[in-house]
Each structure stands twice: as C-alpha cells, then as structure tokens.
C-alpha cells in the first residue's frame, strides 16, 4: 500500500473529508463522555445548549470568541507566511501590560482607548520582532524562541503584579489597579453584555482578509509561505516581508490582551488568558488559515469551551473534555486535508 497524490480533488473529497473529521471529533467526544460515566448524547446536547441555548450563553460565547479571533488571526497571518509564531500568549500579555500602563491614569479622555490599542499592538509586535530578527539574521528557529518567550513573559507579568504594577488595594491578590472608566471598552449596545472588542475583532478579520487578498504585501506573504526560495528568486524582499508579517501578527495577538483588559477584566492578572495564545493555533488551523474562517472557527471553539463549562457543572464530566475535543478536531482536520489530496493505492 502506498499513497498517491490526487491532481484535482473533486468536491466530494473536498467536503467529505473535513465533514468526516468533524464527525470523528463528535465520536471522540461521545466516547470520552461514556468513559466519564455520562450519557454521550446528553453530554453533547448539554454542550450545545450551554454554548448557544440562551441569550446569556450566546453572549458568553461571543465574549469568549473575541480574544480567540484576535489570536487566531495573529497565527493565521504568521502561519500563512510559514512564520511559526507560537508566542501569541506572550504577545497577548505584552498588549495587556501596555493597556494597563496607559489606562490607569497616565492618559485621560477619549484618546485613551485608541492610543492604548496602538501602543498594545506595538508592544506585541516588538515581542515577536526579536525572535523573527533572530530567524532572518542568524537562522535561529522561531518555534522554540517564541515558545520560550511565553514562559519569560508569564514570569515578567508575575513580577509586575508583585512589584511595579501591584494594586495597593488588591488585598494581597496579585493584580494591577483597575482601568479608569475612559479606558474601558464600551458595550456594543445598551444593556448588552458584549463589548466593542468583538466588533473590532470582526473588523480586524475583514482587514486582514483585505490585506491578504488585495495588497502587494498580502501577495508577498503568501508567496513567501508557499515557496521561500522561489519568492527570493523572484526578487521579493523576503526579510522585509517576514518582518512585516511578524509586526502584523504580534500586533493582532496583542489586541487580544488589550480587548480582554479593556473589555472584560478591567485590570491585569496572571490568569488573564487561559491559553488564548495556544488555542489561537487551533482556531487558525480549523479555519484553514483563512481570516474570515477564523471568525467562524473562533465562535465554534469558544462555543465548545463555554458549552463544556456548563455541561461539566451539570454532568460532572471534567471540562478538559473541551481541550481534548479541540485538539482532536485539529489533528482530524489536518489529516482530512491531507486525505483530500492523496489516495491509498495497492502495490
């Protein structure tokens, strides 16, 4: 038995295999539920109801999707250019730190929000710039350096929360002082528990899509990702394209931190992100790195998390079922994509 490439996969293959991947993920979920001693159909039902079954649940899902859209976009942009940015978590915290630094009284009035957003993006971009410069100048693999930056940043945040950014009124909790009201993101509608970060995330997705499909930079990013040598041979400024990609990617990841601080928490704490930077990888891959697809997959992933939390409270199945399902979905999906392009032949 061996694998043979399929030159032009038909529509059946292109839809069939990803659909199978989703079914397989559902199957895994049901098996896990059964292992946990719960009724598989009830567990799946509770996850769906917990995610979208009520106005409150739906809003929670949209809120949870907001940082995931940003980190998903950050990773989609980078991976498209084959820049392996696994450090979205660190860039997210860089954005969060800057948001708190600027939003606790240094600036006032209506300029706080736009300035803190831009400064956060800059901070996130700078955090990714280091590893990318090491990659393009010295050939240091960016996977490990960006990963290690996540740990360095987590310690830096811990230092800030126990030192310079410690809330004197925090009653011993390691958290920063609260943002001033002008630095908080307003809600998208009166009485609606959904902040403008979600709207901006949608706008960013469209923005990234425009950049990727309608600009020279977008073309160059895709060319560098598709074939670095060919891009260089064609006279493209590969180094500069990679650096611009990094700035965009780091900036987008930082906006996740900005939105979480300014829209949800109102202060910086070490548990600001339960791994949004890592989950962004799943979001981006499930979206096949398409910026508009990122919105859909972020909603799906957020729904699974929110739904699993609700299900766990009711059915007693550990919430980590959500992480397992999503990791399984990621692996099934990459496998499905590969299977659309190859067939197994005998001989």
């Amino acid at each position: 038995m061996r694998l043979e490439p399929v030159a032009q996969p038909g529509l059946a293959r292109q839809i069939g295999f990803p659909a199978l991947a989703l079914l397989a993920t559902l199957g895994v979920g049901m098996i896990l539920a059964a292992i946990a001693g719960a009724d598989p159909f009830a567990v799946l039902g509770q996850i769906v109801i917990g995610a979208v079954g009520s106005r409150l649940a739906l809003l929670e899902t949209l809120n949870r999707a907001t940082p995931l859209i940003f980190t998903g976009l950050a990773i989609a942009v980078a991976f498209r250019a084959k820049l392996w940015n696994i450090g979205a978590e660190a860039q997210l915290y860089a954005g969060a730190i800057v948001t708190v630094a600027l939003g606790t009284g240094v600036l006032g009035g209506p300029v706080v929000l736009p300035i803190s957003a831009l400064a956060a993006m800059l901070a996130g971009a700078l955090v990714l710039l280091g590893p990318v410069l090491l990659k393009v100048r010295l050939g240091v693999d960016e996977v490990v350096t960006t990963l290690l930056f996540n740990f360095i940043m987590a310690l830096f945040v811990s230092y800030l929360l126990e030192g310079p950014m410690k809330d004197p009124m925090g009653m011993g909790w390691p958290k920063s002082p609260a943002l001033i009201p002008e630095a908080r993101l307003p809600r998208m509608a009166e009485g609606l528990r959904l902040h403008w970060g979600f709207g901006l995330a949608l706008i960013s997705a469209v923005g990234v899509w425009v950049i990727q499909t309608r600009t020279t930079l977008g073309f160059e990013m895709r060319a560098v990702g598709a074939n670095l040598r060919a891009a260089r041979f064609a006279g493209m400024p590969v180094t500069s394209v990679l650096i611009k990609t990094a700035l965009l990617s780091g900036g987008l990841a930082a906006l996740a931190g900005w939105a979480q601080v300014a829209g949800v928490k109102g202060h910086l704490s070490a548990d600001l992100s339960p791994g949004f930077g890592y989950t962004g990888i799943i979001v981006a891959m499930l979206a096949l790195l398409h910026p508009l697809g990122v919105v859909v997959s972020a909603l799906f992933v957020a729904g699974v998390f929110v739904g699993a939390d609700a299900m766990s409270r009711a059915a007693g199945v550990p919430t980590y079922i959500a992480d397992m399902l999503l990791a399984a979905a990621l692996l099934f999906m990459v496998l499905a994509l590969a299977l659309t392009r190859v067939r197994v032949v005998r001989g």
Partner: peptide, 30 residues
Amino acid sequence: LVVPFGLSQHVVGLGITLLATATAYFAYRL
C-alpha cells in the same frame, strides 16, 4: 500523521502536545 501522510510536523506536534496534555488532565480529574 507525519511520516506516511507527511503532514506539517509543526502543526501535528503542537496538536499532539495539546491533545496529550488535555488527556492527562482529563484522566486525572476523572
């Protein structure tokens, strides 16, 4: 996933890390 199917070693590796970590935590809680 990565040898006969030749899938991206970066993506599969990270996926395996997420899956294995979640499996361990899930099983521990169970």
